[in-house]
Design a protein around this nucleic acid. Structure first.
Lengths: 367, 367
DNA sequence: CTAGTTTGCTCTATCGATTGACCAAGTTGC
DNA sequence: GCAACTTGGTCAATCGATAGAGCAAACTAG
């Protein structure tokens, strides 16, 4: 009957332990442990090995995770700290990190801040209780990043910041934001735009500042002037996009194109434009960061710059487990950013390249 | 300098342990443990208590999580198994469960299947290694649900299925799918629709069958006939929605309204309708499950039936920790389903109620 | 034939917190 | 004044796996 539990002599059904396996296989518990971990220091006959494995199999034994962690100090659990599961960009990162964690046989502990706790508290919770022995940090503003860095360095915990850094941090994996901005700007310039503005993320976020800097540089390289008020800060949220858009419309000399450095912010911008009666892309072209599925289903469909979020999660995890904790890491995700041209960008004053769809939709409102 | 680590006599900086706290506070380690856990069996003077707390504070001591789990058996970790982080509906569930876990001081371990592992394997991984002592299961088809149920019952692990059940399961928390379907159908009937079809989720999923059943009943209650081919199965994915839509268009007697029982499926349907040149809501009204933010930003904006996904996560976790493991649970999320009427539903043949927005958008494609 | 090596295991201490049994000193009841 | 409690703790065993030292038997070299 019971397949995964052992019925002891007394008849009580209990949890399968390494000692039980050892007893049934007539070996020492240490052997079981070493076989399962492929301990190189172990010399054991093939016959014993297979006898043990057979028992392990039969009883469905898996080492108790807590005991394993308590005793050994090898990396077996990695924490991933994010602001919110509901932001699709972070969902991508989590997804990538999780797939990689399966591959490395590591357990991944994802923790989100989302109102009830600050990013710092999450880090302290995970580290101080030894729940994880390494950490991927994908949330927090500059100030928090800085404090987290200090905390982790002092504790001598291995960690990696995902697309963030501050003075003093020496371990980050970046998305190629510079290239992404450049792709967007070049695309817009190629369409004939000269008045290009950017919505850049909060300046309290290092990514925000980095993207802003990259934007300014891309303009300069293209020989375009920097215009006053053409870089607006926004929260990485729909509401942030909406209010950023409002500030753009207050400008005297309005831009004809907009680079928005986060997806949901872009969704907010699009919604606000629609409400304001501003036609996209005729009156305003919009290119948005992060090539999420949803981009194909908005109206107009969104031109996106695909950053490798999932790859960042996966590569981040791989770096974390492969590099020594004190080594400096300053890497960029290996897969390059890509531009996905859709309807939301067009030459100034023109409609989208594929008007058929939109015409169809007009029927809904016209008659 | 070092605030959270202790500099021992030898000068080596090391991890803070309960024994160290005890030594500095001049008490037995047991006292420290009992104070921190508010052990009711402990009698201790206020003076000692505060002396210990002061040291705990000063050293930043937190009990080692692995040691704690190894020794004690009280519920301290709950697993949550989902199919994919990137599906926004599951992101909501995870969010709710996580917020609740903070509140209950429990650690939540979220694990997703997403191609690399089956739901069953995730469950076994978590349980057999004693990583968690209770489990919320929000993924898996009927067959998997059944096997998971068997596995967990046999192991005597506390668990709760989220919006799923099969013959033999005795612990589930449900969304009010029946009421949700009813709301949608009543709304559509109220608009004048008589030919209403449903896209219902795979019949291998219990939720799929349940929603299908509820749909049939709602029609019957309204005195509408069941029509052949009016219930179509679809994957909970964009692609699923697209192919389900294709099957709907093949019908001789086409419906004028559609209830889609999952959000991203609905997005797929909307996209397919657009590509097929079918106007929503003029030619086809669409009401979609799950009231996600994004519904406001699609064109047309989507009429949704808001299920309480986040609440399901939160209430599920609360049930799991408050109910004894062998008690039967058959509950429905306390907050009721709500209808959010937007542009994608209208009387048959009519455009949306608020055409202004759509007109604005026409400019983009017209000239 | 013996010292030295290899093979294949066994034994023991340990990770850090928790639990229940136990105990000394002080207090109360009568 | 002494038994019975109460107060405020201490002590030792334990959870399950692991690392490394140790060790008997078999084998090899000279």
């Amino acid at each position: 009957m019971a397949k995964r539990t052992v019925t002891t002599e007394a008849g009580t059904s209990t949890r399968v332990t390494g000692a039980q396996v050892a007893r049934e296989a007539r070996v020492d518990p240490a052997i079981v442990s070493k076989i399962l971990r492929n301990d190189p220091s172990l010399r054991v006959s093939d016959e014993t090995r297979s006898r043990v494995m057979a028992v392990v199999e039969r009883l469905g034994y898996r080492p108790n995770y807590a005991a394993q962690r308590l005793r050994s100090s090898r990396i077996g659990a990695v924490g991933l700290v994010i602001p919110d599961f509901r932001n699709p960009a972070f969902a991508e990162i989590v997804h990538g990190a999780e797939q990689a964690s399966h591959k490395h046989s590591i357990s991944l502990f994802v923790s989100s801040a989302a109102s009830s706790k600050s990013t710092i508290d999450l880090v302290i919770d995970l580290v101080a209780s030894d729940r994880v022995d390494a950490l991927l940090v994908a949330g927090g503003n500059s100030q928090e990043t800085s404090r987290i860095n200090e905390y982790l360095v002092e504790r001598n915990v291995s960690f990696l910041f995902l697309n963030r850094q501050t003075a003093g941090t020496r371990r980050s994996l970046f998305l190629d934001d510079e290239r992404a901005i450049e792709l967007a700007v070049e695309h817009l310039i190629g369409l004939g735009h000269r008045k290009i503005a950017a919505i850049a993320g909060l300046s309290t976020m290092e990514t925000g500042r980095r993207r802003r800097r990259a934007f300014t540089q891309a303009l300069r390289r293209a020989g375009l002037p920097e215009r006053r008020g053409y870089v607006v800060e926004a929260d990485y949220s729909i509401a942030g996009g909406q209010s950023a858009f409002a500030r753009i419309t207050e400008l005297d000399d309005k831009p004809t194109a907009l680079v928005v450095s986060e997806f949901v912010t872009g969704v907010g911008v699009l919604g606000a434009a629609r409400t304001a009666g501003i036609s996209v892309p005729r009156d305003l072209s919009i290119a948005v960061f992060n090539n999420l599925d949803m981009a194909n289903f908005l109206t107009p469909t969104l031109t996106t710059i695909g950053l490798q979020l999932s790859a960042m999660g996966a590569e981040g995890l791989a770096l974390l487990v492969s590099r020594p904790p004190d080594e400096e890491i300053n890497a960029t995700v290996s897969k390059p950013a890509e531009l996905f041209i859709r309807e939301s960008t067009a030459p100034p004053g023109e409609g989208p390249a594929a008007p058929a769809d939109v015409l169809t939709l007009q029927n809904g409102g016209a008659a």
